[in-house]
Design a protein around this nucleic acid. Structure first.
Lengths: 339, 339
DNA sequence: GAATGCTGCTTAAGCGCTTAAGCTCGCGCC
DNA sequence: GGCGCGAGCTTAAGCGCTTAAGCAGCATTC
């Protein structure tokens, strides 16, 4: 019923040329006269022909696709605004180059490795993005061994053969601490991400540094895992402290929002009894009460840049690392001088 | 430097057989002796050979991939917990079948159409998921014309050649209204999604029906767009009403959380001055203050089921629509009798 | 006027698989 | 002993493109 979709041969026949000529015309290669080229393009349009990506990629040895594997438990994946925005950024550039994004969501780190092996082994993608870097991340050597181009989000701790797109989260955290210190806070706690994750520790270290520079004691720190539940739990721990903090710097917005709720629940009035800062500036941050003072993180731009870099790498460039402008502290209502 | 990856010919040579035999052995087809099969598999393992997905799909005429196009503005994409969870569900089943997911994120409905055309035209995917159905959704005829298998999330309004995976959101909304009415509320407002979206109107209609069944007046309704900002704005409108509602049923959690913040900001004490319900049960819902009474929506399971259905369809089945169990109202602290 | 070079095509091979068809055994059977 | 037959392979074609190499025709060049 539905007739087979046209192939390059059909287009060639209709335009009265060989298949090779069609290919040349389509890819804007020299060797086809202007007249003929137009005739071919017209024929292609009339037949509604689009070259088959599979045939193309078999003969060009390119997948014309990039891969992203997200190793997060499903519930965190849904809550965290990072991936969707990053992906949206990636897509804006892939769209233009007619490439596509192959996404793999896996529950844990073991499956993650298998996912990379598969993506590379089956040659489904020309390159991959590496997010959520861990300490001594096993993916770096793995990808090196698999021989697949990759771009890392931020620089891994050890040596890496891959270019990185970096967004320094330290200035934002420092700014938050400085802001709180300037308001008069002295007991500023931190709820961090997992120390296994590089951006977990980097935010924590930035907090410690800024604290010591401000001459403050940097001991009130709880490790959490970026989830709302863990943020709430960490907040309870901190609020139970004998010397209760008057401000908490959270490593992401999600935990900050959960923490604010815990504080409210305990009858603390925000921001007077407790000041709070987040990180990410997720859209909801501006719409909680009090609106959350946080640090922006342009995941969209991160995605765009990473995509451009990876495409370049795949095309044979030797791109340098790129440093994105660090996030800005945006002041809202969740911070105030301590009572 | 990195030697070329092995092809089926290398494996065949090493095992001392023809390429065809390797193919048979790999795909568990008859016609290869047990001995030989083992020898082939061993050779493949030694070389670390994996069949190239491109070559495979060219010759089998299958992309071995499914497509999902998400047409949402990037900021909403990031905030909404639906897509990530849905995708995670899809992936759990695709992982086993060695298929992959091709994701396209596009900013608007026009680009969306082009995205489907491209996915189908380039034959990058064997089938697509259709989410966020609209009234008289143009994608239904489009996909029919493109001749690509599809599965819709919920049933489109008009006739559709495609099977649907349905999750009825009406019982949840009705339960919310009934719960509020039972608590003694009479002025129960609704903040709905865009009427252009089927699940926007279906939730609204469910609210209206439940209201009229409870003998209540169903006029306090504001259309929003599922975003936090729009939820906040809608809430302001409602709270400005001469006859201020004592309860608001939101069409999703994000708007509900934003609405709660608006109410707090105005000095209303939740849930006493205003009861609130959400929809989706995003993880954050349990961690706001007061914890949000909402309706569960198992996006993960939705993804799993849709993936199975689509794989079946692609394989030539004629699957029936499947009806998922409707979401449950989960009672938390954001609802209470009116003062 | 033959050699040279370009332009604008065509031919043919190849990408790495799948699969229909064919071939070669060894075996049972009459 | 010849025959058919199935099991276990191999051969070869084909999937729909790309691209190196070839070739015809014509304009230049000396």
């Amino acid at each position: 019923m539905a007739e087979l979709r046209p192939t390059i041969a059909d287009v060639a026949a209709r335009a009265g040329v060989s298949a090779a000529a069609v290919s040349f015309a389509l890819n804007a290669k020299p060797g086809v006269g202007e007249q003929t080229r137009r005739r071919i393009l017209a024929a292609a349009a009339e037949l509604g022909w689009q070259p088959s990506a599979r045939a193309r990629s078999l003969s060009t040895r390119q997948a014309l696709a990039l891969g992203l594997v997200a190793a997060r438990p499903p519930e965190l994946l849904g809550a965290d605004p990072f991936f969707p925005s990053f992906i949206a950024g990636v897509e804006t550039v892939l769209w233009r180059t007619k490439q596509s994004l192959v996404l793999q969501v896996v529950p844990d780190a073991e499956t993650e490795e298998a996912a990379y092996r598969r993506l590379a082994g089956e040659r489904r993608v020309d390159g991959v993005f590496v997010a959520d870097l861990r300490r001594d991340d096993p993916r770096i050597p793995l990808l090196g061994e698999l021989g697949i181009p990759a771009v890392t989000l931020n620089r891994p701790g050890g040596p890496s053969p891959f270019p990185a797109v970096c967004l320094d989260d330290r200035p934002g955290i420092r700014a938050a601490v400085e802001h709180l210190a300037a308001l008069g806070h002295t007991r500023i706690a931190h709820v961090g991400g997992p120390v296994g994750l590089l951006h977990g520790v980097s935010r924590r270290l930035a907090w410690e540094e800024a604290m010591s520079e401000a001459g403050l004691d940097a001991r009130a720190c709880v490790e959490a895992d970026f989830s709302a539940a863990s943020g709430a739990a960490a907040t309870r721990t901190l609020l139970d402290l004998a010397e209760r903090p008057t401000a908490i710097v959270y490593a992401n917005d999600l935990m900050a929002v959960a923490g604010m709720s815990v504080a409210s629940e305990r009858g603390l009035r925000l921001p007077y009894d407790l000041s709070v800062t987040g990180f990410d500036d997720m859209t909801l941050a501006a719409h909680v009460h009090p609106a959350l003072t946080t640090v922006t993180a342009d995941a969209l731009e991160w995605g765009r840049t990473a995509a451009r870099l990876l495409l370049g790498l795949v095309a044979g460039d030797r791109p340098d690392d790129v440093e994105l402008p660090p996030g800005q502290l945006v002041l809202r209502r969740s911070t105030a001088p301590p009572l």
